[in-house]
Design a protein around this nucleic acid. Structure first.
Length: 232
DNA sequence: TTGTGTTTTACGACCTCC
DNA sequence: GGAGGTCGTAAAACACAA
């Protein structure tokens, strides 16, 4: 936006001040809006009123328009210099105390009300920008977490494959052990081998084809951990 | 040229604080 | 109760794509 550019109305007016009228979108009826709202006559119910604006190309020099400047709303386009000074001031402090407002208004040749409005709008823009930045940060964080989750899931799949291979290997070894001839009075190793289950009992409430004797506490804890991850 | 989205200035309504 | 805040919105100017 080029703040240095004068608006059409300003050029016509030779001034920064102009009253304005408005036409509603649904009709050509011009609705007058007053600063003090004293003439509403609409009871206590809050009613949105249209501001009075000057239509494009209309003259400003007639008596009616001049009179309107006192009681009606007006709009000014700030110059580059004014905006720069306001920005500088806003950079120092976002809030505007009464004394500071008067001082800035005096320095820039503006109405104190204009300075107040400018700060209000500037705060709103600043807040929007902050919200956008906050959103952007959160989104980046979210994306990072999702990526990490994908990596973990892929890791889980690989580990499950490894687990399955290991189980298969164990099964084969057990079968080979079974086929070996037994000797009742031999070493403790053969006794242990005989004590090992010949048919695997599956761990209750799991899908894993795990020999029952593998279900010690550590193993169970690990399985719960992986089950939790899988469910996630 | 025209339609549409964005920016800027301004205000009304309402809220909070002193 | 008044001053100053936020929020939502109007309207003009402006930017830009079709």
């Amino acid at each position: 936006m080029d703040h240095g550019r004068l608006m059409d109305d300003q050029m016509m007016l030779g001034s920064q001040v102009y009253p304005y009228t408005t036409q509603t979108q649904n009709s050509n009826c011009i609705i007058v809006n007053q600063i003090d709202g004293s003439s509403s006559g609409e009871g206590s119910k809050p009613v949105k009123r249209r501001r009075k604006r000057r239509s494009k190309g209309s003259s400003t020099t007639n008596e009616e328009d001049v009179a309107e400047i006192g009681g009606m709303l007006r709009k000014r386009k700030l110059t580059d210099e004014q905006v720069n000074m306001l920005e500088y001031s806003f950079g120092n402090e976002h809030k505007l105390e009464s004394g500071r407002k008067e001082k800035i208004a005096g320095e820039l040749g503006l109405d104190p009300r204009q300075v107040a409005v400018w700060f209000q709008n500037r705060r709103a823009r600043w807040k929007n920008k902050k919200l956008e930045e906050e959103y952007s940060k959160l989104k980046n964080h979210h994306d990072t977490v999702v990526l990490g989750q994908c990596q973990l899931e892929s890791q889980i799949l690989k580990l499950k494959e490894q687990l399955s291979e290991a189980q298969s290997e164990i099964r084969k070894l057990s079968e080979r052990l079974e086929e070996m001839p037994t000797n009742s009075s031999s070493s403790s190793l053969s006794v242990e081998a005989n004590d090992a289950p010949t048919d695997f009992e599956l761990a209750p409430e799991t899908n894993y084809n795990i020999p029952f004797y593998m279900l010690d506490n550590n193993y169970l804890q690990n399985m719960e951990y992986w089950d939790g991850l899988c469910m996630y």
